[in-house]
């Protein structure tokens, strides 16, 4: 193989590196900088020291948003991933049906988030929506569920929509990993008289471990910084009941013109997501040894 010069590598990496630094890396110290100011996003910047951070620590809505984010993390890790894994295992067998099902199950991921949110908002519509209509048809005539307007229910309704959208992604991830497990292992275990459960427990699961960990980190970080479906479905409402850190950040920075405080939330979000993924990766690495 021809030796590639360092310069060539550098030049090929440059465009991606530039875009990454400009749009991903640079905003982080910049947000940290803005978090010390009262600023509308334009015009004069007034230095306020740690005021924004003090406000954040005492801000009840931020606490609520943070808690909601953790609920989302929990329900994604223990909802999305197991279901995705189950589907992947069922679809791993190659038959005609599984090919069709694979395509069908993959559809939610192909739709844009806004379309998914609009779809679910029609499903949840309390008066004419699919779900309530269905419940009424099968006999619950007096049942009226207010999926998005009830503050106790809104967040969970949104999480169902989020899971529906992202399960196919993890399903494909797991499916690819399962396909990579050599058949010899299963053949050998069959010779040894292993049951289906034992196959899963002692071959599939251990070999999927790296994929599961990767998927978990993706799901963890994705859930902590989640924005779009919530924004379209409830806008964080009613009355902040389904507020997430990212929607609260957006509201402050762009609706209330409090760019300084919005930056503070953004940085807090970054620190939280960063810390949790580091801890998660450390813990799972230790487990591997």
């Amino acid at each position: 193989m021809q030796k590639v010069s360092k310069l060539t590598i550098f030049i090929f990496l440059l465009p991606a590196l530039l875009i990454f630094s400009l749009y991903m890396v640079a905003p982080i110290p910049l947000s940290a900088f803005y978090s010390f100011f009262r600023w509308k996003g334009f015009g004069e910047r007034v230095f306020v020291g740690l005021n924004n951070w003090i406000e954040l620590i005492g801000d009840g809505i931020f606490h609520k948003a943070l808690f909601n984010n953790f609920k989302l993390v929990f329900l994604s890790l223990f909802g999305q991933l197991p279901i995705a894994l189950g589907l992947a295992i069922l679809l791993a067998k190659k038959t005609k049906t599984t090919d069709i099902l694979k395509t069908i199950y993959f559809v939610p991921l192909l739709m844009s988030s806004v379309a998914v949110a609009t779809l679910w908002s029609n499903i949840y519509d309390p008066n004419f929506g699919l779900l309530n209509m269905f419940l009424q048809t099968i006999g619950f005539e007096n049942l009226f569920i207010d999926y998005l307007g009830n503050p106790k229910l809104a967040l969970y309704s949104v999480i169902v929509a989020i899971n529906w959208r992202y399960i196919p992604f993890y399903m494909i991830l797991f499916l690819a990993a399962i396909k990579n497990i050599p058949d010899e292992l299963y053949e050998a275990s069959r010779v040894d008289g292993a049951s289906k459960w034992e196959n899963f427990r002692y071959i599939t699961l251990p070999l999927l471990r790296p994929t599961i960990i990767n998927a978990s980190v993706l799901s963890l970080v994705g859930s902590l910084k989640f924005f779009d479906i919530v924004y379209v479905l409830t806008g964080g409402g009613p009355n902040n009941a389904s507020e997430l850190m990212a929607t609260y950040m957006y509201k402050n920075a762009f609706n209330s013109l409090r760019m300084g405080y919005g930056s503070t939330i953004a940085l807090a979000l970054f620190i939280i997501a960063f810390t949790f993924s580091i801890i998660f990766m450390k813990v799972t690495k230790k487990g591997a040894k």
């Binding site: 949840y124 009226f144 207010d146 998005l148 809104a154």
Partner: peptide, 22 residues
């Protein structure tokens, strides 16, 4: 309407109730 806080004006969910004689 029941569920008022969850209905979306941008999707015309308020007017649907008028059109449906509700």
């Amino acid at each position: 309407p029941p569920g008022v806080n969850g209905l979306d004006e941008d999707q015309g969910q308020s007017r649907q109730l008028l059109y449906a004689d509700r």
